[in-house]
Amino acid sequence: MSTKTAVRDLLDRAGTTYAEEAGIKLEDKPAPLYRLLVLSVLLSTRIKAGIAVSAARELAEFGTPQKMRDATWQQRVDALGRGHYVRYDESTATSLGDGAEYLLDRYRGDLRKLRDEAGGGIKALKSKLQEVKGLGPVGADIFCREAQAVWPELRPYFDKKALSGAKKVGLPEDAKRLAELVGDKDLARLAAALVRATLEKDVAEKVSA
């Protein structure tokens, strides 16, 4: 199988971004960016991606920092429970409330202001993201991996987990070389597909360059 054929097959099989899977129509607007942030918090814990995505869907009713902050702790716990996100439900409910309050106080609930403060620097952006409660280095990577769909300065963004997937399917373990295999609009899709190749054995087995 040629490299281009392998990439096309990989995108067909596993190229849905996690944001899309969670029902988030990602745009450079406050609400969808915040929902992506919440999803990134959920995905960064030691829990199956499918459960994190399900929980993010349940939390959609609190889809702005204002709504998340104003929800009771129990309402957040209940939403996480409906998504079967039960192992970390109580601590995550607290983190989401604290994180929402921080975003409102610091950026008026608008992650684009955080982006502006980073001044186009990826390292600065990741550092500022990690000031949000519940979002560590892994969560910041997840956010950037998906946000590259709407924030061009992040492109190409392939974190360690994505590059691990590239190795498993025989694709280049280099962000720039991977970016040459797809157009800008498919970078986030390719990154998500490569993460699935890392996490899901059957994806890697069925796709090989």
Results as ranks from 00 to 15, higher is better:
65 P>L: 06
128 K>R: 14
42 L>T: 00
127 S>D: 11
45 T>Y: 15
73 W>Q: 13
110 D>P: 09
117 E>Q: 10
58 E>L: 04
96 L>V: 01
74 Q>P: 11
92 T>Y: 01
96 L>A: 00
124 A>L: 13
59 L>W: 00
54 S>V: 03
76 R>K: 11
65 P>A: 07
45 T>K: 15
50 G>F: 06
77 V>I: 12
114 L>P: 06
86 V>T: 15
88 Y>V: 10
73 W>H: 15
85 Y>L: 03
106 R>H: 13
120 G>D: 04
58 E>D: 06
86 V>S: 12
91 S>P: 13
79 A>L: 08
73 W>K: 13
67 K>R: 15
70 D>T: 11
107 Y>S: 11
127 S>H: 11
58 E>I: 02
42 L>F: 00
117 E>Y: 04
106 R>T: 15
80 L>N: 02
58 E>A: 02
96 L>P: 01
49 A>D: 13
43 L>N: 00
116 D>T: 14
72 T>A: 07
95 S>M: 11
75 Q>E: 15
82 R>E: 02
78 D>H: 08
81 G>D: 12
114 L>R: 03
103 L>H: 03
78 D>I: 05
61 E>M: 07
106 R>D: 13
114 L>F: 06
69 R>W: 13
48 K>I: 15
47 I>A: 11
125 L>V: 05
105 D>I: 08
76 R>H: 05
111 L>H: 05
66 Q>K: 12
42 L>H: 01
45 T>S: 14
87 R>I: 14
95 S>A: 14
64 T>C: 07
117 E>D: 11
45 T>D: 14
54 S>L: 05
127 S>I: 08
107 Y>T: 12
104 L>W: 06
71 A>K: 00
110 D>C: 09
115 R>D: 14
57 R>W: 05
94 T>P: 06
121 G>N: 14
59 L>T: 00
52 A>Q: 02
102 Y>T: 09
59 L>V: 01
71 A>L: 01
85 Y>C: 03
52 A>K: 01
95 S>G: 10
43 L>R: 02
105 D>N: 14
97 G>R: 02
77 V>F: 05
103 L>I: 05
110 D>N: 11
57 R>K: 13
59 L>Q: 00
42 L>Y: 01
